[in-house]
């Protein structure tokens, strides 16, 4: 049994770096058992391959370094993974895993369909080599699913697995041949957020505001608090729908799903669809002037107070 992990990486200014989510995915692969191989596909990814070879528990790193794989276009990368799996034969790869990052979610279903197997999305635990747990209904239910596919294609929700050590391994590195560009898609450009604040889904602390913020300018209170905590700033759907902040800040069932160490909900009543996006946070703090607000039912620490007094005071005490 061998598990193939698809590495994700961050395209930096000078060097591409391996995405931390890859380490959580290797952790899931290690729980499945057997050898763990890592595929690094991209352009000028020698540095990423070296980093992948040092990950604890990885036996082999396969590198497909070619312009066709730059920016991980799925039309080019999916056939590469499929060929790798099929060529490995019956004693070859039993599982293909990728982190449930936007790259993983973009590429892996394409791989599964080409292999004619179902994909199991966003697992949060490994019960056995063919049985996994995954959240459905935005985490309002947890399904235990079993796969009878010869090759199990799986994306891994990174919050479900502690990352393995980035150092300590000594895997062999093997270059593999690249297939020609499929010629169906081209990378045009990218615009990465230049915020000094962490990304919502990766942040250890998230401060979110709801309709109680009153308007967009008042979110400055939250930004000030977030900067004291090194936190990302989110919002409820009510705040987004009211036009206070843009859509990409929305935490909830139809927005981003977050599970930080600390989630501070400010002026958020706690609609079901918001709770679905944040209730796996380790510690939840709610600040709301309505003591009947449903958010207090999931909060570890509730403070019934006017947010315009409490938030600046909280920022000043940190």
């Amino acid at each position: 049994m061998t598990v193939l992990v698809i590495a994700d990486f961050l395209q930096g200014q000078e060097n591409a770096a391996i995405a931390p989510a890859t380490l959580n995915t290797v952790a899931a692969a290690a729980e499945i058992g057997g050898d763990v191989h890592v595929l690094v596909a991209g352009q000028a990814v020698g540095g990423v391959a070296e980093a992948a070879a040092k990950i604890a528990g990885v036996a082999k790193v396969l590198v497909a370094d070619n312009a066709a794989y730059a920016h991980l276009l799925p039309e080019n990368v999916a056939p590469l993974i499929v060929a790798l799996v099929l060529e490995s034969g019956a004693k070859g790869y039993s599982h293909v895993l990728a982190p449930a990052t936007t790259n993983g979610k973009n590429i892996l279903p394409r791989v599964a369909a080409l292999l004619d197997v179902d994909q199991i999305s966003e697992i949060i635990s490994v019960e056995s080599a063919n049985t996994f747990k995954r959240p459905i209904y935005a985490g309002n239910a947890i399904a235990t699913v079993q796969s009878s596919a010869a090759i199990k294609v799986i994306t891994v929700r990174t919050t479900g697995f502690d990352p393995v050590a980035a150092e300590g391994g000594s895997a062999s590195v093997e270059a593999i041949a690249a297939a020609p560009d499929a010629g169906k898609s081209k990378f045009v450009g990218e615009e990465l957020a230049k915020s000094d604040r962490p990304e919502l889904t990766a942040a250890k602390v998230v401060v979110s505001g709801g309709r109680g913020m009153g308007n967009g300018d008042n979110f400055n209170h939250l930004y000030a608090l977030a900067d004291k905590l090194g936190a990302a700033v989110g919002a409820s759907r009510a705040a987004v729908d009211a036009g206070f902040v843009p859509n990409d800040m929305q935490v909830g069932q139809t927005g981003k799903i977050v599970a930080p160490q600390l989630y501070i909900a400010v002026g958020i009543s706690g609609a079901i669809q918001h709770l679905a996006g944040m209730k796996d946070s380790k510690v939840i703090v709610a600040i709301n002037k309505d003591e009947e607000a449903p958010i207090f039912q999931v909060a570890d620490y509730g403070l019934v107070a006017d947010l315009f007094d409490a938030v600046p005071e909280l920022a000043s005490q940190l």
Binding site: P135, A143, V145, S148, G302, A305
Partner: peptide, 21 residues
């Protein structure tokens, strides 16, 4: 793929109210 079971997620235990920042 077969779904073996569907469970409710672990419930959060009720928290406490604090009186000040």
């Amino acid at each position: 793929t077969k779904t073996l079971k569907v469970e409710a997620p672990a419930a959060r235990s009720a928290g406490i109210k604090v009186t000040s920042v």
